[in-house]
Simulated assay, not measured.
Amino acid sequence: MQSTVTMSAKPKLPPVAAVRVISKIRDVFSSLTRKMVPPPVVLIEMLSGFWISQSLSVVAKFGVADHMSETQATSAKVLAEKTGANADALYRLMRALSTVDIFREERVGEFRLTPIGAALKTDHPQSMRYFSIYQGQLNWVNWGALGHCVQTGTNAIEHLHGMKSFEYISGDKERADIFDRGMVNVSAMELDPVLAVYDFSPFKTIADIGGGYGAVLCAILAITPGVKGILYDLPQTADGARQHFEAAGLGARVEVSSGSFFDGVPAGADAYLMKHIIHDWSDEESIRIMANIRQHIPMNGKLLLIEHVVPPPGVVHFSKFLDLEMLVATTGRERTEDEYRALMAKAGFRLNRIVPTIGLASVIEASPV
């Protein structure tokens, strides 16, 4: 498991406003490009998009990028020998991915990594390898049942596997490990933008509820030496978190405890943090989780959610497709600012502010009432 503690100070990133302007310009150009191409061609490109995602997942599963470099080309034949793949099939796969800038084919059959492809390496500081495996190996079949989800309003995992989403994921060690490592990948990608805009130093103890292996809490504690942490997750995940904190040299500053946040949460923190937790659950379930936090949080404490906030109609944002992922895989949904405000009020909190980042997620800050 890769360490997520790579800094001792807040990351320096471009201003949020500047990045948002650039994103809007990109969206405008994307829209113009689609309008300039015949509609059937646009639809063919969209409909074949899953070819790319599945190709990425397979390359990640075989660990191809781990045996490659950005500076020197390697032959597909050599890579096939190192990864146990068929040489011809691997070459065809890599050739296809070279058209979307994952690899660069220097000569016939010889490839080097691009900066994008390098993020598929296991040891890349912002690796997306395990998230890619998760998408193609576990999540692939779920999206095949999107029609059922739209027809019934229920998720695909319960329909396909007869059990709740997280029961299914945690019910198999390999599945759970791929999922947890995939979520570590996503956390690493979103951490710098969050750390750059939100100051965690005023808190004495931060409790990360449902914090997985501790990627978020590790990064926060690394840049706030005076702060202590509590990591709370299911028993099988908490065991991995303990090893993670010890390896990062933070074991003495973190208390790791295990259980279900539906039954309760640990006391003793003045900030309760949840990253991409509330979006996994229905309104009723989300209120129950936050109400359990409300029982322990001091009146001067803060509830901090790191979530996507759905923007108004007409605004392009990743959250509008991520909401479909929630429909397919969970009982949850992505929410607007007004929906978060109403949800928090029912759990005994007042939404104070939403702090945007240059990434896709925002920090939603609330106080107990």
Rank of each mutant, 00 (worst) to 15 (best):
M1W: 10
Q2V: 14
Q2W: 07
A9H: 10
L13T: 02
P15K: 14
A18K: 07
V21F: 05
I22N: 09
S23C: 13
K24M: 15
V28F: 09
V28K: 13
S31P: 01
T33M: 15
M36S: 15
P38R: 09
E45P: 04
G49K: 01
I52D: 04
S53H: 14
S55Q: 11
V59W: 05
G63W: 06
V64Y: 00
M68R: 00
S75F: 02
A76D: 03
A76R: 07
D88I: 10
D88E: 12
A89G: 05
A89P: 09
L90F: 11
Y91F: 13
R92V: 03
L93V: 03
R95W: 12
L97M: 12
V100N: 00
I102H: 07
R104G: 06
R104N: 14
R107L: 11
A119C: 08
D123R: 12
D123C: 05
P125T: 13
Q126I: 11
R129A: 00
Y134S: 01
V141T: 10
W143V: 15
A145C: 05
L146C: 00
G147L: 10
C149W: 04
V150G: 04
E158A: 11
E158S: 09
Y168H: 14
S170M: 15
K173H: 14
F179S: 09
M183F: 11
V184I: 11
M189Y: 08
L195S: 03
L195G: 07
A196L: 01
Y198N: 01
I206Y: 07
A215N: 10
C218M: 11
I220L: 08
I220H: 06
T224Q: 00
P225M: 08
G226W: 05
G226L: 10
G229C: 09
Y232K: 07
D233T: 11
A238W: 03
D239C: 11
E246G: 08
E246S: 10
G249N: 08
L250T: 06
E255S: 14
F261Q: 12
V265S: 13
G268A: 03
G268T: 05
A269C: 04
I277C: 06
H279R: 11
D280L: 15
S282T: 09
S282E: 02
E284K: 15
S286L: 05
S286Q: 04
Q295V: 10
Q295H: 08
H296M: 14
I297Y: 09
M299F: 11
N300W: 06
G301L: 15
L305P: 03
G314W: 13
V316R: 13
L327D: 00
A329I: 10
E339F: 02
Y340S: 03
L343E: 11
A345N: 06
F349M: 04
F349D: 02
L360N: 03
S367D: 10
V369H: 06
